[in-house]
Structures are given as C-alpha cells and as structure tokens.
C-alpha cells in the first residue's frame, strides 16, 4: 500500500502505472459499443440455406410484374367500346321482349308485406344518423313513423324528466314569439 503524505487515503499498488492502459481499453470498448459483457454478441437468428441467392430474382421478378401491370389507355377504350356495344344489344333485346308481354310489373305491385319482410330480413347497413340525413324531415311527421299516437303530455313529461337545462334543446325562440 502506498501512502499519501498529505492525506490518509490509500491506493492499491501500481494503480497509476496501469491507469492509462485501463482507460484506453475502456474508451475502446465504449467506442465499439461492446462494453456490455452480460449481453450476448450474437442473437441466434439464422436464415434458410441459399436464401440470399434466391431473394434477388424474387424481388426483380416482382418489380417487373408491377411494371407490366400498366395497361395503355388506348386499349382500355377499345374494351369499353366493346362492353358498351354488348350492353346495347342486351338492352335492345330486353326492351323488345318486354313490349311483347301484355302487362308490366311496377313497384306498386309488390305486396307491402314483402317489402316489410325484406327490411326485416336485410339489414340496411346504415346508422340512424345516416338514415336521418337522407330522409327529408320536413315531409315526415312523428305520427308517420310511430305506431301509437304521441300525446303532447307524454312529450312534456319526457322532457321534464330527461332534460336538465332548457338551453340544451337549442330551441329557436323566435318561432314562439
């Protein structure tokens, strides 16, 4: 043990002699980011044999595939013309055969029970908000959609029980003046 004359602290023998070496080792470790002894240097992942040789042609064929998907606009038009011509022929045949039959079926001929059954069995896939946006509210009164007649007293009773602040109703007071 080496004693310092001016204080009572001791240091191990040869501490300063190899300090530089230890410091340089530490700096080297820090720089390479490999100072962590606990953490394994290899993470254990492997790849199938020959994978890296196969991946290049796989990628190149896909980029080629994506390019060939670009179809010139011109040929699209000829396709549409063809489709339009076929559709026109079908419409012509259909209208001719329809004329030959004596009675045509209209929407009114559908039994209302069938329409109701359709709505019962098929979900419209619309929320009540979406339905509300397409049905003109001015033309529909509450009595049209409710089975029972709604008494004014019931409405007032409902509002009395469920509305805490009259402001929430956003009423346009000018209507009542």
């Amino acid at each position: 043990m080496k004693k310092n004359k001016r204080n009572s602290f001791n240091i191990p023998e040869g501490y300063f002699e190899n300090f530089n070496d230890r410091l340089m080792d530490r700096i080297k470790e820090e720089e390479t980011g490999k100072a962590e002894s606990l953490i394994p240097k290899n993470d254990g992942f492997t790849v199938p044999d020959g994978y890296f040789n196969k991946v290049t042609p796989a990628v190149l064929s896909k980029t080629l595939e994506k390019e060939t998907k670009v179809v010139p606009l011109k040929s699209n038009w000829s396709f549409y013309y063809g489709a339009a011509a076929v559709a026109a022929i079908f419409i012509l045949i259909f209208s001719l055969t329809r004329k030959s039959s004596s009675e045509s079926i209209s929407f009114d001929d559908l039994a209302s029970a069938e329409i109701e059954a359709y709505f019962d069995n098929n979900t419209l896939g619309m929320t009540s908000y979406e339905i509300a946006t397409i049905i003109p509210i001015e033309d529909v009164s509450l009595d049209d959609v409710l089975n029972d007649v709604l008494e004014e007293s019931s409405i007032l009773e409902y509002l009395d029980e469920n509305v805490e602040d009259i402001e929430d109703l956003n009423l346009d007071y000018s209507d009542y003046e």
Binding site: P40, N42, D43, G44, F45, T46, V47, P48
Partner: peptide
C-alpha cells in the same frame, strides 16, 4: 427452426 439461440439469447 431458424432461431438457434440458447437460453440467454431468448
């Protein structure tokens, strides 16, 4: 099959 890590690597 393409992970050959041992306990510490897991």
């Amino acid at each position: 099959v393409y992970f050959e890590g041992d306990e510490i690597q897991l």
